[in-house]
Every structure is written in C-alpha cells, then in structure tokens.
Amino acid sequence: MTQITDRSMRTAAFKPEADDDMLICRCEEITKGEIRRAVYEGMYEITEIRRWLRVGMGLCQGQTCTKLVQRIVAKELGVSPAQLESAAARGPVRPIEMACMGNEKGGVC
C-alpha cells in the first residue's frame, strides 16, 4: 500500500540547491535537481518518479541509485525513506537482450 498519498502536502516553490547538478542515476544521467524538481511537480512515489524521469530504468536497473533516489525524495517530502514504497519489482530483474527474451527453451512463441 502506498503510504504517501496526500498530494497537497507540498505547495512550496522549488528552491535550487548547490548540488542540484550532481548525477544520481548514473545510467540515465539524471541529476539530484531533476529528482527534487519532480517531487515539486507532484511525483511522490518512487514508481511515478521512475516513469517520469527514467531514474533506475537504465542498464543497471536501479542497482546503484535506488536507495539514493529514495533518500532524496524522502527528504523533500519530509518523511523517512522507509516510509516510501519501493518501485514495483518485475522481471527481468537483470538486463537481457530482446533476442534472448524471445529465445525460450522449448518455447512456442
């Protein structure tokens, strides 16, 4: 269950910070500022932010930045990172070529 649902909770304006230009998602090259801004644009859930910015959706599949993104979003929302629901986990959990995906052993498709 999503625990953060009150979309009116953040109405203040986005304030730039000195380290906004720092990369957080190394694969998709998404900065801290972009993630922070997304929260002000109404993205409160990790799943929403993933879809909005593609953080954690690159080649490494979020193995490096997931916790970092969670921490940044939680700080902006003023909650503990543990209160944020993780993005949905679904297969393939590791990068895999489409050709390989379509090559199922004993498969019919």
Binding site: R90, G91, P92, R94, I96, E104
Partner: peptide, 18 residues
C-alpha cells in the same frame, strides 16, 4: 531474471531463457 507465483524461476543462460 524472475521469480513468479508457484515458485517458478526464470533463468537466462547462453542466449536462451527457460
């Protein structure tokens, strides 16, 4: 690469999934 209901495990080996 995946774990599905019924403890079904999807594996990838040598360019093939099973």
């Amino acid at each position: 690469t995946g774990l599905y209901p019924g403890n079904e495990v999807m594996i990838k080996k040598g360019g093939q999934v099973s």
